[in-house]
């Protein structure tokens, strides 16, 4: 892809992939507003986790290590003795399987980083910082700090929210009432409409929508992101390449 964005490479930033402190700090600050809302979800998770019988230390550790809200809530549903480790693995894997695709989509970029930076940055991979970084990458921006810094902001907010929830013991457990459950989808939707490549993506995205809806209807839970993304990717190969180059040149 890099060969297609010569203009933006020179205007946006250096063309060399790197991971800088300045870029990480910039990414942190850029994700800070959204992270404030993540605090509320952290609180909601703590409240749910305490009701499920986890200790405070366990709750903090789960948020810190897993850092993926949906799968953490998912495991709470089966948190009872005796617990099936296989079920926990399947839930965690299935709900987080979209990370596989997100991580694969960043490969052309991350492969140029030293392994230690690459694999520590990936620990903080989450929907929001991935979406923002992907946009950066296709616009020719090369500092992976945006991904790491954004992830650190989200992780910190998740931990702060979890800690507040543990401290309060109860209280804020109804994010829906305040419209907070739609934040992440609204953010990702804004990313979709904010991209510069909308016209050439009409067909792949339409295929993704149809495949996702079909998967929601007929396939097991949590397969829809994989199915939709793969369908969109396949259609992306099938459409003529010409339009892609024209778009990039404009």
């Amino acid at each position: 892809m890099s060969s297609e964005q010569p203009a933006s490479n020179t205007t946006m930033n250096s063309a060399q992939t790197c991971l800088t402190v300045a870029g990480t700090w910039a990414g942190f600050r850029r994700m800070a507003p959204l992270s404030l809302f993540v605090i509320v979800f952290g609180m909601a998770f703590s409240v749910a986790a305490m009701q499920a019988g986890l200790t405070s230390t366990q709750i903090m550790l789960m948020s810190g290590l897993v850092f993926a809200g949906a799968s953490q809530f998912g495991v709470l549903e089966v948190w009872a003795s005796p617990i099936s480790l296989a079920t926990v693995v399947v839930i965690t894997f299935a709900i987080n399987s979209r990370h596989l695709l997100m991580s694969a989509s960043l490969y052309p970029w991350l492969r140029e980083l030293p392994p230690r930076q690459r694999y520590s940055t990936l620990f903080f991979l989450s929907d929001a910082n991935w979406a923002l970084s992907l946009q950066d990458y296709y616009q020719g921006f090369r500092d992976v700090g945006g991904l790491l810094g954004g992830g650190l902001a989200l992780w910190s907010a998740w931990m702060i929210g979890t800690a507040i929830g543990v401290g309060l013991g109860s209280g804020f457990d109804d994010p829906e009432r305040w419209g907070l459950d739609v934040i992440m989808s609204c953010f990702l939707l804004a990313m979709i409409f904010g991209g510069s490549n909308k016209k050439q993506m009409i067909l792949p995205w339409s295929a993704a929508v149809l495949a996702t809806m079909a998967a929601l209807q007929w396939l097991p839970d949590n397969t829809h992101v994989i199915v939709g993304a793969l369908a969109g990717g396949l259609v992306g190969i099938l459409i003529p390449e010409r339009s892609e180059q024209k778009e990039a040149a404009s």
Binding site: P204, G232, G233, I237
Partner: peptide
């Protein structure tokens, strides 16, 4: 080249696929 185009289309499609359930359900 094909893999790159696949990744490019797939990554945007993953975004779309994450949002679709809220719109549908």
């Amino acid at each position: 080249r094909r893999t790159e185009r696949f990744i490019y289309a797939m990554s945007g499609s993953a975004l779309v696929a994450i949002v679709v359930p809220l719109a549908v359900e």
